[in-house]
Design a protein around this nucleic acid. Structure first.
Lengths: 207, 207
DNA sequence: GCGTTGCGAAACTCGGCCGTATCGAAATCA
DNA sequence: TGATTTCGATACGGCCGAGTTTCGCAACGC
């Protein structure tokens, strides 16, 4: 593996350069297959190569094992801008939960979510990457909304932010998974947020 | 397959009867393997037979495919008595969440939970069975506690029970999955319940 | 004893996938 | 032009598991 010097002085390997297009189509094929419900363990290099229109060699030249490839594939998942803030805390939260609910209604998102959830025992690196890319950014956004509410007085000043986040996020996931098939889901974000804001106890001064 | 008549007049197939012991050990081996983190797709009939000390024939004679076997195995999961009720609603809820949290700390329970969660796309029958056996009974117990609180006045009379359940159950799952590794989990049930009971808004009359 | 069925073990065929090697063509630079 | 590397394609040996068959033995009713 000799190297060559470009005009800019950047070392570059001799010979034909690797195709970025091939690289992208490999990753896209991986995400496609995962999004169709193929689990990491059933995911075969051959199926990825075939789907990507690429030789197996081209994959093995870049990634030495399947997990590395999946980690890199997950790394390309950019969480869509989640929150156009601005209204009351209640409205922002409802908007946000609606985004999550909308995502969870897509088969592809749900499959990738499942991988992150269930393969976390066997593939800690996958779980770690997923949390870093998807969970944490969103947690941060909602935490900011909650903190704003605590400052303006719309929320309790002694709110336990971690628990509040868990209550809201967990409820959406839970309902997506376990609510009865026929039920309507349209107003779920509002109902979750309102129950969480009001609390379960009676509010003596606000009938 | 001729049949014979017993003294009680119950038809019974001729020849050596099937061994109930073999059947039980097959199912137990299946649950063991699933509990060790083997996913449904990686679960091989050969590994089950070997673990159960049984010939493959004995398995194929009873179940025509893997999914049927796993469904039957899940069907033997009896949810442990979940709630020794009696105190305040708050205490009952904390106790209940503690049970869930305790279960979620066992590797076996977590693996089986993962299967129920993530294979629900590809194996609807598994998800259905799991909900029927595990989710619904528990949902019913907590719903009863909440209803009692609504009657005694400890909870709001217009509480949205479905959302309350989702907030509480979802929060535990969420925290079990995504909370940071090093964090202490000891007081999580109390914190969840208290935040849910108080609500996020300030309570004007209760400083 | 006899017919029937279940048992565990082993052998078998078949297909899928792994990871490597090889091929001719293409892309890049000196 | 020649050296080097990558490309997609294909073939290869090897492993593993599916699902079936066979075998000798055990358990049942008659």
């Amino acid at each position: 593996m000799k190297t060559q010097q470009t005009a800019e002085g950047v070392a570059r390997p001799a010979g034909r350069p690797r195709s970025e297009k091939a690289e992208r189509s490999i990753i896209e094929a991986t995400l496609e297959l995962l999004g169709e419900g193929i689990g990491v363990s059933e995911l075969s290099i051959e199926s990825i190569a075939s789907r990507a229109g690429v030789g197996k060699t081209t994959i093995y030249r870049r990634w030495s094992n399947k997990e590395d490839l999946v980690v890199d594939a997950l790394a390309t998942l950019k969480p869509p801008i989640p929150l156009p803030q601005g209204g009351t805390v209640r409205d922002d939260l409802v908007t946000y939960l609606r985004v999550i609910q909308e995502e969870a209604s897509h088969h592809r998102t749900r499959c990738i979510m499942n991988i992150a959830m269930s393969d976390s025992e066997r593939h800690p690196r996958l779980a770690e990457r997923f949390r870093e890319l998807t969970v944490e950014p969103r947690r941060a956004v909602v935490a900011a909304v909650l903190r704003r509410g605590m400052e303006t007085g719309e929320l309790r000043a002694d709110l336990d932010i971690d628990m509040a986040l868990a209550l809201l996020s967990g409820a959406v996931i839970w309902l997506t998974k376990w609510s009865h098939p026929g039920e309507s889901h349209a107003d779920i974000p509002e109902r979750i947020v309102d129950e969480a804001l009001k609390g379960f106890r009676p509010r003596p001064s606000e009938p």
